[in-house]
Amino acid sequence: MTTQVKIGTETTEDGSTTIFSLGGHLDATMVNMANEKIQEILDGPSSHILFDLKDLNYISSAGLRILVYAAKKMKAKNGGIALCSVSDNICKVLEISGMDKFLPMFEDRQKAIEAIQ
């Protein structure tokens, strides 16, 4: 079983959006790592974060918390967050928990970036 989380960030050309790839198993022990990275982005110039969840196979409630946290903080910067390439499994978690209401989801990066900008 994989308990590793893969994290990668890149910024769109105009610098307005940071794309945050989250892969693997995002449980309570792995959340700290992601949290630090998010804090960096929050302190940076981007006004939007796009979470690319293509390779994410599990998200715990602690993982959901950091998404909500990022959403709130980015909103305060007049920006926001979006998710893309969300697997059926994760999608189900988001729907049951009602979190889909706060976390707009898009099919892929392209569509998400178009919607954001």
Partner: peptide, 10 residues
């Protein structure tokens, strides 16, 4: 279900 969101975020 009744469609509610978790407590504390909204």
């Amino acid at each position: 279900l009744t469609g509610g969101v978790p407590l504390g975020i909204s």
